[in-house]
Design a binder for these strands. Sequence first.
DNA 1: TACCCGTGGCC
DNA 2: TGGCCAAGGGT
Length: 367
Amino acid sequence: MSPNKSVTSAQISIKLLHWYDEFGREMPWRVSPADQIRGILPNPYHIWLSEIMLQQTQVVTVTGYFQAFLSNWPEVHDLANAKDADVMARWAGLGYYARARNLLKTARIISKDFSGIFPKTEAGLRALPGVGPYTAAAITAIAHGQKATVLDGNIERVMARLFLVTAPLPDSKPTLYDLAAKATPDARVGDYVQGLMDLGATICTPRSPDCGNCPIRPDCRANATGNAESLPRKLAKKPKPTRNGIVYFAYTDAGKMLLETRPQKGLLGGMLALPSSEWVTGTPEPAPPISANWQVLPEQIRHVFTHFKLNLTVHMAKISGPEQLQDGFADFPDPNILPTVMRKAYRLALINIKNPSRSGQKIKGAP
DNA sequence: TACCCGTGGCC
DNA sequence: TGGCCAAGGGT
C-alpha cells in the first residue's frame, strides 16, 4: 500500500463523516452522531434486527416492520419467547422468509445461551443463523463501534466508482472488499459505514447518480472519466422460467376457510398459505385438499419470485356440511399475515364470494 | 460453485 | 411492462 493511498483514504473518510453529520438519515434503529456524543449507545438488539430486515430490502420497506417488531417484542428475550406463528405472521410481506426463521433461532440462542448479550466479535456473530459476512461486519461496526470491513451492495457500487473497478460483479467482489477494507477509518466506523450506505442509497445511486451533490466527487475516478453510471458492471442474469399452479380456497358461510402452514424449508417456508398444488413448468397436477364442488376462477394470479414467474389459478368451494370441516379451518384472517402471493389469491377469492357471477365453470372435485 | 430464496418501486 | 435493483445468507 502506498503512502499516498493511505492519506487519500483518510481524507475521503473525513469528508464522508462530515457529510453524514449533516445529511445522514434518521432511522428508528440509529443513534445520531449528536446523540452518540451525549453518550447514547446503539442497542445491539435493534441493530441486529434492523440488519436482518435490511438484507436485500430497502429502508423504506423495513421501517414499519421494525417498529412493529419492537412494539411486540421490545427485548431479545421477548422475541425468543414468541410463538413461531406470531413472528412469521408479523414478517409476512417482507419476503425471504428464511430470515424470519433464522431470526427466531438466533433470538433464542442469544436469550438462552448468551444471557441476552450479542457476541462482540465478527466470528462470534458470524456463527449465528442468518448472520453472514456483511451482517456480522455491520453489527461489529455499528453496534459495537469496532473496526470491520462492511461490504454491501451500496458500498460495492461506491467503491467500484471511486476506484474505477471495471471488472464485473460478482467476480470483482474480492477486489471491492480489499478497497473497502483499506478505505475504512479507525475512528467512528459505524457512522462511516452508515454514511457510505446512505451515500449509495441517495447520491451514488445505481441509475442517474447525483454526482453534483457528492461529498467525495473530487476523489471519484469514475466521475473523472465519465463512467459512474455504468459501474459497477454485472454479469448477465439467468432468465426466469414461468411456473403454473393451483391454490384452493375452501370456505364456509360461517366465515371460516382452510389454511395450512407450509413446510419449514423451501419457498415461503413456515408461512401460512392456501393449500396448493405443486408449482411446475407446464400443467400442474390438481391437488384439492378436500372433496368438494370446486369452481375455477377465470382470473389468474401473477407473481414474480426471485428465480421464476408464477401463474396461479384459484379454485373455490363453499363447504356446507360440518362433516367436511377439518383441522386447518380458521376464521378469515387479516390478509397481512399471509405472504404476498397468497394475499393476492385470498383477495381475489374474497371478491368472488361477493360477486359469484365472476366464477368460472364447475369442475370435478376431489380425490 | 451454482442455485435457492420475496417483494415493491422504478423507468 | 418487463427487467433491474435493494443494508445477503444458506446449502
